[in-house]
Design a binder for these strands. Structure first.
Lengths: 160, 160
DNA sequence: TAATTAAGTCAATATGGCTGACCTAAATAA
DNA sequence: TTATTTAGGTCAGCCATATTGACTTAATTA
């Protein structure tokens, strides 16, 4: 059975090859986030601040609830980060039509920081994928998408 | 110029499309690590323990220095995690030919945990990529590889 | 009017990083 | 042979990010 498996399984489905993917995920994600991390450090922010700025920048007038459902962290965790961003005027709050809700948006200052941080990642991705053909890039995106838990794939689709 | 760019830039190199990749990286990495995280939680370990177990399992008789150069964390950070793994008998230390060095290897217990944790990620990847053709999978791997900082790509090649 | 929802807050806890300072023992270079 | 470098260890303190649990307020909805 094990031998039959070896005969019938294409090489790219071997455990050894799959383990390479595990490592590629680790190394690439680490280096993918390291650029923004360095800038954030200077202004005493962390990766969590970047995420908030990123998604607020993407969807202006996001409510806290929506943001929590994207980030999937507790409101207590978000609270610390968000309060800092509001206090330091990167993010502006306003009250929604439903007066229980609050809408988040980037200030000019916040938008500047968002640009600065995302630019690094955008450039990195651009410089990588420009050397690949459309099929390869689509393969990359489709595989990554399928690596997202089924229940969370909707979230990606919702915001895009 | 901006208009010319729009005319000449393929759609998959647009900022909007690249931002999707940023999000795919975030969501996929989060869900990729969530499986092992749940198991680790039960035995009061974290993701850092998984990494150590993973790379020691991959390369038996790894030295501390080599492990540090893969993980790129400080020895003080590694120390806490590693001491726990040794104390709880997941990892065994022995002295190298160069008597200043120590070699790390997994105990039977450690190997069992490694299997249990990696199995989740291996199965997840297997179940995703089995539905893709070889070109798409290669595209995926090649793009991920190129997302690794140049200076760190060697590290991936060394261990593979 | 009662129940639910959105948001906020206080407190305690855990994990995973970091810097800096300092130590030991072994290997290597001058 | 002595001096330097290297591998590893340790103590202390700090910071960021996350968690759980308990409780509050105000607005909406049943």
């Amino acid at each position: 059975m094990a031998d039959l498996n070896k005969l019938l399984t294409p090489i790219y489905l071997n455990e050894k090859e799959i383990r390479k993917i595990i490592e590629l995920m680790f190394f690439s994600y680490r280096d993918f986030t390291s650029g923004p991390d360095k800038i954030l450090e200077k202004i005493k922010f962390g990766r969590a601040h970047h995420r908030v700025i990123y998604f607020v920048g993407k969807r202006n007038n996001l409510t806290i609830k929506e943001l929590l459902s994207i980030l999937k962290i507790t409101k207590q965790s978000l609270s610390r980060v968000l309060n800092q961003l509001v206090k330091e005027k990167y993010i502006v709050l306003s009250i929604g039509e439903d007066k229980r809700t609050k809408k988040l948006s980037l200030s000019r200052r916040g938008l500047e920081l968002e640009k600065k941080l995302s630019e690094i990642q955008i450039n990195k991705i651009f410089n990588v994928i420009k050397n690949f053909n459309e099929n390869e890039i689509n393969g990359f995106k489709k595989v990554l998408f399928e690596m997202i838990d089924h229940k969370n794939q909707n979230k990606f689709n919702e915001i895009n």
